[in-house]
């Protein structure tokens, strides 16, 4: 198997430049890009924001800058990231009391800033997106999550990172239900821009539901209607003529590949691995204990058995 590149930033040099700038302690490149995207392209801005906060040196870099809408937003994103580091990514039952306290304290710090930033600039899509995640972690309730998403969708439709975040909130494990989660994913595909990334939401919803079923899940993903819905979602999205790869295509294809692979449809998996070439986003496999190994196995099977199908 050829070396697979799992670092999306290699494919997106302008985001990669931000990571380099943070590492070098250079604020100006970060500010000039992200501030522009914050308004024009929140999808790009959110990828950039997570890149900043996941890079060593971000805290020091932000602290050294004057407090602006952007530095405060990125600092809040940092608190959210720290919150989930404290919590861990397991189910609620695996989180200790002490972890909950630390998790909540970080989210409160983030949310207080984000609430003010949203008030200052109600059209700031990046802030609106981050509030979906802080609100979910704080458990502010389903109707509040829906209010926040509605406000965001009114200023930034087809914002896939925000849609993915909201779908998590709508999942039964947070504030929603299976029905709400699927309804949201399917409506986003139906009402979204043709060729948008919303098809990925269908894949995520099936993945969440399969995980939710636990031991009873078994062959759920293998069901024909599930696989057919994934195909239709991919046709409306990554395989649609109007699809613009942008910054999303690696993640989009990776989710479809993962779900088809879980369903044992190596032929359908293969279409996405072929589109991906030597890259992938392991995010879709992150629920597995060893995402890398699962991905490699799925890819190998798809490229061998998938061809025979």
């Amino acid at each position: 198997m050829p070396d697979i590149e799992f670092d999306p930033l290699v494919q997106f040099p302008e985001i990669g430049a931000i990571r380099s700038a943070v590492r070098a302690g250079a604020w100006e490149p970060v500010a000039s890009y992200v501030d522009e995207w914050r308004v024009d392209d929140p999808q790009r801005a959110s990828l950039a924001a997570w890149t900043v906060v996941e890079t060593d040196g971000a805290e020091a870099l932000l602290t050294a800058q004057p407090r602006t809408q952007l530095t405060r937003t990125l600092a809040a994103a940092l608190r959210i990231q720290e919150a989930w580091q404290i919590r861990g990514s397991g189910r609620a039952s695996t989180v200790s009391d002490e972890q909950w306290v630390g998790f909540r304290a970080k989210l409160v710090a983030a949310e207080r800033e984000l609430m003010e930033l949203a008030a200052i600039d109600p059209r700031d899509g990046l802030v609106a997106y981050l509030r979906l995640t802080s609100g979910r972690g704080l458990g502010l309730g389903l109707s509040e999550a829906q209010r926040r998403y509605a406000r965001l969708a009114a200023i930034c439709p087809d914002y896939i990172s925000a849609q993915m975040a909201h779908l998590q909130t709508l999942a039964p494990k947070w504030s929603g239900s299976t029905e709400l989660m699927f309804e949201f994913a399917r409506t986003a595909v139906k009402e979204g821009r043709p060729g948008s990334s919303a098809g990925r939401l269908v894949a995520l919803a099936h993945l969440e539901h399969w995980l939710d079923l636990g031991d009873e899940g078994g062959s759920y993903v293998e069901r024909e209607e599930v696989q057919q819905e994934l195909v239709a979602a991919a046709d409306a999205s990554v395989f649609h003529p109007a699809y613009e790869p942008g910054l999303r295509w690696i993640t989009d294809h990776s989710y479809f590949a993962c779900l088809h692979a879980i369903g044992g449809r190596h032929d359908l998996t293969r279409r996405h691995f072929e589109a991906l070439g030597p890259v992938a986003d392991l995010d879709a496999w992150s629920y597995f204990a060893d995402p890398r190994a699962e991905h490699d196995a799925d890819r190998a099977r798809a490229l061998t058995e998938g061809a025979r199908a």
């Binding site: 008030a119 309730g141 389903l142 509040e144």
Partner: peptide, 13 residues
């Protein structure tokens, strides 16, 4: 009511 709480504090802010 959760949305009312959220909207209320957002309006004040």
């Amino acid at each position: 009511q959760d949305a009312v709480v959220g909207g209320f504090v957002d309006v004040l802010a």
